[in-house]
Design a protein around this nucleic acid. Structure first.
Length: 351
DNA sequence: GATCCGTGGAA
DNA sequence: TTTCCAAGGAT
């Protein structure tokens, strides 16, 4: 089974940028970006990141705004904050080098068992197994596991340990993931092209389309939000930086908040701006309304132009506030939904 | 152990 | 359009 998979990988494996290096820093960056994120999405971010921050030392001394700006649009922004922190830890505790032992790597923020195994096996060919989404699916079908993956994680880790090739564990882990990503697909796997179908219990039982078992998900709530683009006399716009952890932590945004039952958008914006920033605004025309999905809820953003009337803005429920011109907005990291607002502002200004 | 944490590709 | 879900980890 190992040899069949390794042979298949030699012929059919993907040529990906991070497979052309053994630099643990570059491989680490790729592994973090690839968490819950498709390869196609990651590639341009990966390339740009390594051009801007080619070494651990560069990342460690970088400004957090620069780090988050390089991450803008990738989501799960704690990944970027943890990369930043981990690089600083490597400077102080590991002489600026990426550590070589599993306990040291696992002690770094943002790195769990799968990411640690991925890095150590790919960079140093250490025999450490992984269990990412691809491997879970492949192994689940290989043994025809008929119970929810979440409740079988111990068993799947054991199988991953057992199948790992002791001679070339790095290549083997990559091969297992490629099989999951290109052949052993979530829906309608291409078993005719699979080098392991002879060994696959799910294929033998014709259950490849039913496994892994579907997990049930909680329904996602919806919120309506009032958002303010507040202009001052100088033609500048007020933005705020979100608290350093939690949802979209450290990113900049246009201020606003949830519309309460019975409240109009205008009422909501006036109230939220008073509560968050301690100022009075006049709510004007609607700029744009847009829907956006986060990981645990959906929102409709109702964005209005506002005019600053009175009071000095205070960072009451945020980390920092700043008046900026339309052109300066590009220097700040914003969530994807706010990038749409900026685009609408620029289209307005161009008219 | 359940919940939190983004975004976009693909069907 | 809706739904699924992707190289998971932290709390």
């Amino acid at each position: 089974m190992r040899q069949r998979l390794l042979q298949w990988y030699a012929e059919q494996g993907r040529d990906l940028p991070w497979r052309r290096t053994h630099d643990p820093y570059a491989i680490w960056i790729s592994e973090i970006m690839l968490q819950q994120t498709q390869v196609k999405t990651v590639i341009p971010y990966y390339t740009r990141w390594l051009e801007s921050l080619p070494t651990i030392a560069d990342l460690a001394v970088a400004d957090q705004n620069q780090v988050l700006k390089l991450w803008q649009g990738l989501g799960y922004y704690a990944r970027a904050r943890h990369l930043h922190q981990a690089a600083q830890q490597m400077m102080t505790h590991h002489q600026g080098e990426f550590p070589h032992t599993l306990p040291e790597v696992l002690a770094l923020p943002g790195i769990g068992r799968t990411t640690a195994g991925g890095i150590l096996s790919a960079a140093f060919n250490q025999p450490i197994s992984i269990l990412d989404g691809n491997v879970k699916r492949v192994l689940t079908r290989l043994i025809a596991l008929k119970r929810p993956v979440k409740k079988a994680s111990k068993q799947l880790w054991h199988i991953s340990d057992q199948v790992l090739d002791p001679v070339q564990p790095g290549v083997f882990n990559q091969a297992l993931m490629d099989l999951g990503a290109t052949v052993c697909l979530p829906r309608t796997p291409d078993c005719g092209a699979c080098p392991c179908s002879d060994f696959c219990r799910a294929f033998q039982q014709n259950m490849q389309n039913e496994l892994p078992m579907r997990e049930e998900k909680a329904p996602i709530p919806h919120k309506s939000i009032g958002v303010a683009v507040i202009w001052n006399e100088a033609g500048q716009i007020l933005i705020d930086r979100r608290p350093p952890s939690g949802l979209l932590g450290g990113l900049w945004e246009f201020p606003g908040g949830k519309i309460e039952p019975g409240e109009t958008v205008e009422d909501c914006i006036r109230r939220e701006i008073q509560e968050e920033l301690g100022i009075e605004v006049e709510v004007g025309d609607r700029l744009i309304s847009l829907d956006h999905a986060y990981s645990h809820f959906r929102v409709t953003l109702n964005v209005h132009h506002c005019r600053h009337l009175s009071g000095e803005p205070q960072p009451i429920e945020c980390d920092e506030i700043r008046w900026v011109s339309l052109d300066e907005l590009d220097q700040y990291p914003f969530p994807a939904a706010n990038v749409q607002i900026i685009d609408a502002l620029k289209q307005n200004a161009a008219q």
